[in-house]
Structures are given as structure tokens and as C-alpha cells.
Design a protein around this nucleic acid. Sequence first.
DNA 1: TTGTAGGCGTTATCAT
DNA 2: ATGATAACGCCTACAA
Lengths: 339, 339
Amino acid sequence: MEKKVTIYDIAKKLNITAATVSRALNDNKLISAKTKELVLKTARELNYERNASAFALRSGKTKLIGLVVPYINRHFFSNVIMGAEEELNPKGYHVMIFQSNDSFEKEKDIINRVLKNQVDGIMISISKTTTSSTHLTKVINQNIPLVFFDRKLEIKNTSSVVLDDIEGGRLATQHLIDNGCSTIACVISNPKLNIYRDRLIGFTQTIEENNMKYNPDLVFEADSSLAAGHEVADTILSMDTKIDGIFCSSDYTALGICQRMQELGIRIPEKIKIVGFSNEPFTSLLELPLTTVEQSPYEMGKVAAKILLERLESDDILLDHNAKIYPKLVTRLSSKKTT
Amino acid sequence: MEKKVTIYDIAKKLNITAATVSRALNDNKLISAKTKELVLKTARELNYERNASAFALRSGKTKLIGLVVPYINRHFFSNVIMGAEEELNPKGYHVMIFQSNDSFEKEKDIINRVLKNQVDGIMISISKTTTSSTHLTKVINQNIPLVFFDRKLEIKNTSSVVLDDIEGGRLATQHLIDNGCSTIACVISNPKLNIYRDRLIGFTQTIEENNMKYNPDLVFEADSSLAAGHEVADTILSMDTKIDGIFCSSDYTALGICQRMQELGIRIPEKIKIVGFSNEPFTSLLELPLTTVEQSPYEMGKVAAKILLERLESDDILLDHNAKIYPKLVTRLSSKKTT
DNA sequence: TTGTAGGCGTTATCAT
DNA sequence: ATGATAACGCCTACAA
């Protein structure tokens, strides 16, 4: 059991005081070149490491970032986390992860816990059921920088990184049109969330830009699940209108639709073309690979972290910074042009 | 910008000293019932929260757990993390996540960083390329409890939770035999890792237990990837021996094999039955759903955390505790009995 | 039962 | 350029 070495150990060894050691270690200019070097050398020799708790107590900086996601085990979020860590770790920050399970109540609890743990900053993607924002204004009032990613609320003095979901909807819809679809349905998840609402806007705009008649009856709401996909597939098939293309705001719903249609012998992409959203790992592994929209979660995590670091490192005014990630269409068999 | 309230604020308000407040807050018995109640009440009123850094500095306990995984965005590991958090958070512990990217070098760096961050305990699943254990004995020497999960090394004074991989291999193999396979191949990833080695042992033992001839030529080594699966499929098909069942230590390799075989018109499960390992999310979404072995990562995370907590809460002797998670066979179409 | 005082390891503000 | 000292917030002997 080795004991932790402190600046006093270094000081004693060099017959100087802890203050001098501290100065040497912190690039303070009030120190001679040679003592500084000497300190750094012995620090290395003794394997000195700054005590994080003492530093935090003294400075008020914990070098900890609270990262709140609905679920950590979702492909999207776990990759955001990867990106954030990649950016934060080299700067000496570490990430504490919290899961809301898409519950507003849990999210409020978490914010309290996060504040209690005295993080230097917060990154959050709000839960599906979050309705108010008072728990987050509390964060702002404590002067803790807050960056939303993907799912955001409009709050003063916060920053955000989101996918350009409108553009995502546009890419998907235009692709279907370009590949010959003339009657396109849109299957959308919870339109209260900014992400889904925007994907729908992108869809609608693109339909209109192409001088196609926008028909609200062709917009369906469905959960992001296989079961919801099965259901909505049945609904779509039971309609008089003959649909030849579907843009889905979720890969899971899209797969559900594909499954049900194939079960019924409807050929994809010949009879109907389908595009999902998120580029979930499974979409490329299917026998009928699914066209989808890449959200670059890893990059999103990096950008969110960068924005947070800006705020953290400069004690300037809390300027808001709202970044967008550009979506990429990933074309696969499910929407292939057929003649 | 609200200021943080300390025990001094509470003390001042009640005309007592900080020491008394501290005692009240920490269930110390040297305090009268009524002052205690009074303190707790005003603490609540003032929204007091203990300063984590001060507590850590004073007590030497950071209430932080270092959790090291090869990749956070793998289904298996992200679910382990979920389970661990579920267990640790209610006890006031938080998790700091570190990724080794399956690199031994990075893992060594991480351990240094983890120690620097003064965690109270460590949970780790070692990288594929970890060859020595000196970086981890350093942890033991600092008296920091260490629990391995899934991928372990044999080190004194450490605990572990692993899947019973031998049993996993056994379940899969016995299932193939029960469903009529008589010539079974085993495709195994890096046999240096305990997990893969044990799955192979389970395979071998089961073959022998069933009085089938164990043929080492039917054991293949292949990465956990689609490409490796394609390759090994070709190898298997080019053999004189007619194989009618394959146990694969990875779902990805298994899928690769399936893809290649289907491409060549070989019918699964009629001609050949295939079983994978891990119950990756995609395995249930395929058109040909894959039989596989569930590893219950969430439960593994919980158990690992529980074992760590035992060590943390009791300052007893460092007793080793090695737990096993029982695997579950998930039967699907790829290995269905055909007549 | 409560108060006093010291120290955990750092850094910043004095003074030298 | 360096040393002495105080303070960050908390806990705990020890004293009362």
C-alpha cells in the first residue's frame, strides 16, 4: 500500500516550500527556470499526481461533466458519449453519465443529483416526456454551462447541437421522389420532440418544392418500434390511396413496415420504397438493407463537447452557440430505383 | 447565481457550531434528538448539499468508480454499464467510464488516469490485446478494490463476474446435437481470451459427452466480423467433410457465415444449422433470425457492482469473490429442427 | 450533548 | 523568486 505523494513531499525533498512547488507545477511565471525544472523532475520521479479533490475544493472546478441521456445503450447515444469523451478527456475533463429512461421525473431527479455532484458543465438530451424546463433553468441560475444535443429545449443562455433534421427529412423525401415515387407517406414518431417535428417539416417542404400535392392523410404517427411499424403498415395497405414510398422517422418503424409488407408478399423496393432514419447498425445487416439517414452521433458528441469547452475555458459572457450536424443519406436496397 | 450553502450556514442560522451540524447530518449518536431534527429540517429548507470535494478530501473517499471497457458503444458493454449504474447510484456512487479500444497501451494509460482520479474502486473488462497484468497489480497495491467482468485475468485479491462460457458453449452445442446435427464445426474468436477459450471448451466437452468423435479440424479461428464469417464459410464449404452444424463464438461471424451460405443457395436450417453467441440486437431482426446465447450483460453489471460494493462497504480482508452468470440459449430459426 | 481546533492537499495573497 | 499563511468545506479527536 503505497502512500500518495503530495507537493509537500516534493518540497521537503528539495528544501523549498509547497507554494513554490505549486507554482512550478502550474506554470506560474514567478519562479526561476531551474527550480521549476527541478520540481518537475522530482515530481516525475516521485510519481506525483495532483489530488483531484483538493484541487476541486480549492478551485471550485471539479473537471467533471454531467452527461444526461435517455438511454446509454442506444447506438445513437453511446456514440455521442464516445465522441464527447474523445474531446473532453484530453482536456482533463471526465464524464459522469446519467440516464433518464425517457422519464421526466427521473430527469428532474438527475438534474438535482448532477448539481449535487458539482459538475463543471452539463450535456443533455432531454427525455421524450419532458414538458417543462424549470429544472434546467435551475442549472443556468447556478451558472453551470449547459449544452443540449439532439433533443433540445429553447432556453436562454444555453447552447445546442442538433442534427439538421429538416434537411434529413428533405434528403430522404427527395431521394424517394428521385427514385420514382409519386405518392409518399410519412411515418413520424412523437411530433412533440424537435427532432421528429423537423423531419416531418423536411418531408412536407420537399413534397411541396417538387410541386406534388401535400396530403396530410399520408402522415401517420407511430412509435419507434417494430410493432408500431406492423400496425401502420396494415393501415397504409388498407387505404384507397396507393402509396409507393414511405419515409419513416425511425429505423425500427421502417423495419416493422418492411417485415409486415414482405409477410404479405409486397415486394420492396419494386412496389414500394422505404427510407428509415438513424442508420441503426442492424439496417445494413438485413437481407433487405434499409436506406436511412446517418446522424453522425460520434461527431455530434464531439461538437457538443467542443462548445461546452469553449464556455468552460473562457469565462466570457454566456454566449449561445447553436450548431447543426449535416445529415447524410445512406442509400441501400429498400429504396432502389426500379424501372 | 445562488451560492452553495454549507454546514456553516446551517450552524449560524441555528446558533450552533458546524461540528454539531455535521454530526446531525451524519447520524452520529452524540447528539440530541431535537437538535438533530432541527438541523435536518433547516438543511432541507436551505437546500443544503454536501460538498463532494470537501468530503472526498477529508475522507479519502471519492464515491467514484472507474469502469473500463473496450468499447462503450457495444451492446454488451453499454448494458453492463447500465446494470452497474443501477446498482451503484442508489448507494451514492458514480461511474466514470473509460474506453481501451481493445488496446493494451491505451488500457495502461487508462489505469494511470483512473488512479489519478482517485476512484474508490475499479470495474474492468480487459482489452483483447492485454498480455501482462502489472498495470493492474499497481491498482491492488494501492488497495483499490478491483472487479473484472467478462474478460478477466487471474490476479490475487481481485474479484470477477463472468459468464459461464463453458456452459454457453455446451448449451449451443447440445442444442445442435439435439436438433439432429452430427458433424459440427466450431468457429472461435481469439482463443487467448478466457471467454472464447471457454466457449470452445464447452463445445469440445459436449461433443465428447455425446460420444461423438471430436475432430480438431472442425475448429476454426475467425474474427468477430462479417468478413471473417464469409471467409470461414468458404473454407468450410470447400472441405471434404460435410458439416451440418456450426457453433460460432460470435454473432457477427455467424451472420457472415449465414450471408455467404445463403448467397450460395445453401438452405439454413435445412442443410446446415447455425448458432451464434451474445444475442446481439440484430439477431432477432434478421429475416433468418439467429439462434444465439444470451449473456445477460445488464445482470452482469449489477452483480459486478454488488461485489464491488461488498468490498467497498466492508473494510474486511480482501476476499476474492468469483461469480458466474448463467447463459441462456435463445432458439430461433437458424437452428430449427428439420425432418 | 456540544464546542474547539486541526488537517485533508491545493492555490492565492500576502510579505520577504 | 521564494516563503508563510489562509482558505476551500468537511469530519473528528479532544476538551468542556
